[in-house]
Amino acid sequence: MELWHFISERWPTILSLTGEHVLLVLVAMVVAIILGVVLGVAVTYWEPGARAVLYLCQILMTVPSMAMFGILLPLLGIGYKTGVAALILYALLPVVRNTYTGIRAIDPAVLEAAKGMGLGEWSILRRIKLPLIIPVVMAGIRTATVMIVGIAAIAAFIGAGGLGELIFRGISRYNRQMILAGAIFISALAICFDLILKQLEYRYGIRS
């Protein structure tokens, strides 16, 4: 009841923090998707690079988020930029890995047919490979998005804003309602993203 009271009282603040949170995640995801797909595609043409890049992305993911923000802080300063940069690094692995394994998993006969018919590498990429890996990449995007919704909460610590602020402020003020509200909204956000992306994935999955 108290919680409900808190939420209705602070509704405008919560709403704007949710907006910040969503924006943080979306900006990071857009960059991560572009970067991840480009990187994932690039390494299919260069096998030794593939192992190195995938390994690096995996290491990045194991860095504790607090430490990641700490490492990036001196480079990008306090605030939004560092938050986004860290989230991009975390989101990269699922996208890169799914792009790479997606392309690797394409039936070689399909690629050989395309090549044998006279399609150039660029045409094959645009008309065959990329459309074929959409479902796999979508799955990677979903994993990454849900993951960084959670991590973005910690970005509030370095002043990037978002719902994490409620949690950090709540901790410093011993305000349980505040912490709970933050946690609930972050979870809800993760669930929403998951459902929406699942829908998209399903639609593209059917198409191919």
Binding site: D107, A109, V110, A113, G118, I128
Partner: peptide, 15 residues
């Protein structure tokens, strides 16, 4: 482009 090719494994584009 000027040689039609029917590959043994068929290799139609599934999407």
């Amino acid at each position: 482009l000027d040689i039609g090719y029917v590959i043994q494994e068929i290799g139609l584009f599934p999407h």
